[in-house]
């Protein structure tokens, strides 16, 4: 009883936080069931309306929504798979090995985080154009496979990784790569999960680069396709809200699946064993 009382404030804090986080979403849900005209009215509608199916049909017709959803999924899955391997390897190398030029590599990684993307767009575009990669998915995936944010995240995660584990694997005769895949990666599962969540979302929501690269509507990814609903003097807000809402669902699913890895005790058990 006393314990429950002590925990009550925690629940209260979390409830307030949750409310602040989801109220805008609830409004998106409501907005996607009204006409755009209704969204300009005062007071704003507070209850769901009856336009959901019409909005959905228009969304599908104007943006070929199901197709762009598949496009986005293909790009994000391929990107996440490869980028996470590259980031984890590089982060591990930087955290656990001492070699000449290590500081330089870390500095270079951080530098690519520090430079505003906007000034790199034109030269990167020129490169893609001269490679003939305009309007291709490799142009969305390859240049950003090495991701500074991910490398830095994994480096920080591996810093405190117990060397004893790595050493014992080596003494058992495992190769460096095998040690990495069999010993290090499984123990670092929570951090890998965080990396995968981050990587998937960043590719899924990526907008400016795909907009510059993709030139035919059948190749559009979600944000680029939704952007076509924004016109010069006409914005289809209810369609946009519905599209954004549907675009969010796969991300939530990814989060819920991967956050299962956030369970204490993996590391403790590993050190003991």
């Amino acid at each position: 009883m006393t314990q429950t009382l002590k925990r009550l404030p925690v629940y209260l804090v979390l409830l307030v936080g949750a409310a602040l986080s989801i109220i805008p979403f609830l409004w998106m849900v409501i907005a996607s069931t009204h006409t755009t005209a209704a969204l300009f009215a005062t007071p704003l509608p507070l209850l769901p309306g009856g336009e959901l199916w019409k909005n959905l049909a228009r969304l599908q017709q104007e943006t070929n929504f199901s197709q762009v959803m598949v496009n986005s999924l293909v790009v994000a899955v391929i990107y996440t798979a490869f980028s996470c391997v590259v980031s984890a390897m590089c982060g591990y190398g930087l955290a656990k090995f001492r070699f000449r030029g290590r500081g330089l590599v870390l500095g270079a990684v951080l530098l690519t985080m520090m430079i505003p993307m906007q000034v790199l767009l034109v030269p990167l575009f020129q490169m893609m154009a001269s490679l003939g990669w305009v309007n291709s998915y490799q142009a969305l995936i390859l240049p950003f496979l090495a991701n500074a944010f991910g490398i830095f995240l994994m480096r920080q995660a591996f810093l405190d990784f117990p060397d004893s584990l790595i050493e014992s694997a080596r003494i058992d005769g495992a190769g460096e790569l095998k040690t990495f895949y069999r010993i290090v990666m499984p123990v670092a599962r929570p951090q890998l999960a965080a990396l995968m969540i981050y990587t998937f979302i960043s590719q899924w929501n990526s907008f400016i680069w795909p907009l510059l690269m993709l030139n035919t509507e059948d190749k559009y990814t979600l944000p680029v396709a939704l952007n076509t609903m924004i016109g010069l003097s006409r914005v289809d807000y209810s369609g946009l809200m519905l599209g954004s809402l549907l675009a969010t669902l796969p991300l939530l699913l990814v989060f819920i699946i991967f956050q299962k890895q956030f369970v204490s005790g993996l590391m403790g058990g590993a050190v003991k064993g």
């Binding site: 767009l121 575009f125 510059l212 030139n215 016109g231």
Partner: peptide, 26 residues
């Protein structure tokens, strides 16, 4: 004639990059 709807928001970013890079415009 292939007409591509590039959306209005950020359309000028797309065109300006193409002009600046001198490639990629239709």
């Amino acid at each position: 004639i292939n007409v591509v709807d590039i959306g209005y928001d950020n359309a000028y970013d797309k065109m300006s990059v193409g002009l600046q890079a001198n490639s990629g415009l239709p």
